[in-house]
Design a protein around this nucleic acid. Sequence first.
RNA 1: GGAACGGUGGCAGAGCGGCCUAAUGCACUUGUCUUGAAAACAAGAGACCUUACGGGGUCCGGGGGUUCAAAUCCCUCCCGUUCCGCCA
Length: 437
Amino acid sequence: MIDVRQLREHADEICAALARRGDASCDSQIEQVVELDRQLREITARRDDARARINELSREVGQLRRDGNVEQAETVQAESRALGEEVGRIENEHEAISANMHELLLHIPNVPHPDVPNGASDADNPVVTGPFLPEGGLDGFADHQRVPHWEIGEALGILDNERATKIAASMFTMQRGAGATMARALCQYALDSNADAFEEIRPPSLVSTATLTSTGQLPKFADDAYAIERDDLWCIPTAEVPLTSMYSGEILDVAELPARFMAYSPCFRREAGSAGRDTRGMLRSHEFDKVEILALATADQAPELLVDMISRVERMISSLGLHHRVIEICSGDLGQSHHRSFDIEVYAPGCEQWLEVSSVSWFSDYQARRADIRYRQVDADGKPVKGTVLVHTLNGSALAVPRVWAAILETHRQEDGSVKVPEVLLPYMRGITVLGG
RNA sequence: GGAACGGUGGCAGAGCGGCCUAAUGCACUUGUCUUGAAAACAAGAGACCUUACGGGGUCCGGGGGUUCAAAUCCCUCCCGUUCCGCCA
């Protein structure tokens, strides 16, 4: 959510910033919110005055009854009762306006960072780092690398999606043998690589409706999540969901910031609307493994953390011997909650496409307002300052297993058809150095 | 799943229709005293909304109800502890 107070005072600037997203409906929504906010404050004032009067009268009644003056007490009670009915009416009005305003606010997207490039769609996302490719560029890959991973996986007996489909449904995957080992090795490697700065969390994989609303998946994207209706729980689509909500409703000490967390988790996505797309191999599936990194920070700390998180992902991808580039998401392609966002893409020579393997994003205080995560500031002497401030949140995938797994198969396939395991994964591979060797 | 008991300020913990504008203790902050500290004494201290910056309102797990008035009574949901059952 964006800040209503900001909206009140700088509506024009916010409208202009949101216009860059290319969504024309924002102007009228903001106009409505500003008007509802005005009404709400007026009604709140009326309600509070009436309540103050009731409190006063009730105290009077108490005193009169103690004094034994029953008759006068009853007169005052009658007055108070009438006021109570009035408050009830005002409250209903207040409730209606407040709900209306909240609903509108939930749909107004975050303001893009000033440095976000203008653009209409993903076609306009500029490459900001790389591409890092072999000599000869996209033509520099050898013929033995130009085999799609689903063919490699099947030939080596380490991918068995047919059986995954049999026991679950289409778009579920299953790795076996050394393939399964390598999938797990990737998770361990990603966790170990970030353990210097991030606390490891093993969060719940099912969360409440309230939790899924805090991070913005609900109410708008309910169709994309698996629901367990009987118990009113949802399967998490990413560890971002439980990690962001860990401190919801809490007030942190500024000394605790930046607070950095990482978690391995399974991720469940219904992929509604994606049926039939990327159905082969590992490019898109209903359940996959991912290691997520996330930070709660002050506004000042956020830009530096963003850069750090991106370079962590880049280093990891490079260390696996993969070819990558970093693109910045342009204003028209930016997700609803995002303030600024970068994708790390890996080139998969077998299926001949750039695969999005990570998205690192800065949400400013947009998520924190929804999740109510704040911190207390201190002054120059280190003493707590009155009041609280919302944190900024950042997160990104440190490593999403399936697409990296696929890129490894294709990139490191050797002339004899086997696949060389990247050196950094060897400590987790139980002695396996080659898949299918 | 069954039963019992709980959920109150940073923590502990009283209150069980009206001086609750929430006792008391610990921790905290600021003063006084002191060379400094400790101790003692005194005062203060939360969050949120709103404001004509004087204030006003809300917050005792959540929601609803009874009442002139609810931390306190009623309903309901959530969470916790203990015991039983079941289980990895």
